[in-house]
């Protein structure tokens, strides 16, 4: 299966800007389906970005983060061609991991 994580990391010398888009329903647990039954909560709880073995950004999410979540942040210390590792785990224990090259 293709990765659920799409990442763009760009370096402009000092700072690396990272944008990530993840495919995930992020069901809040408050929405009902067509039959009027509650769709159980299903959302990413933790999304971690690592560079050089260290976390550079960690997101703790609740179900109020939008479906197919997007996040953007920037960090220092990396250069073009380096890799970052991105991983998430949701409240049902599912997870995904990918790496992205900084351009």
């Amino acid at each position: 299966m293709a990765s659920t994580i799409r990442v763009r990391a760009t370096n402009n010398g000092d700072i690396t800007e990272v944008q990530a888009l993840i495919q995930h329903p992020m069901d809040s647990g408050f929405v009902k389906d067509a039959k009027g039954e509650i769709i159980p909560a299903h959302f990413i709880q933790e999304l971690k970005f690592e560079y050089d073995g260290k976390a550079v950004f960690v997101a703790d999410w609740g179900p109020a983060v939008s479906k197919d979540p997007y996040v953007k942040f920037s960090f220092k210390g990396a250069k073009k061609g380096d890799e970052i590792k991105i991983s998430w785990v949701d409240n049902k224990g599912a997870s995904d991991t990918t790496t992205a090259k900084i351009s």
């Binding site: 700072i15 976390a55 960690v58 920037s74």
Partner: peptide, 26 residues
Amino acid sequence: ENPNALAASYRIPEGTIPTVANRLKM
């Protein structure tokens, strides 16, 4: 006014710029 107020919390280690963009439900 969300059912649960906290939407997202981000840990910012040293060396990371304190800037975050995200999308939330309201």
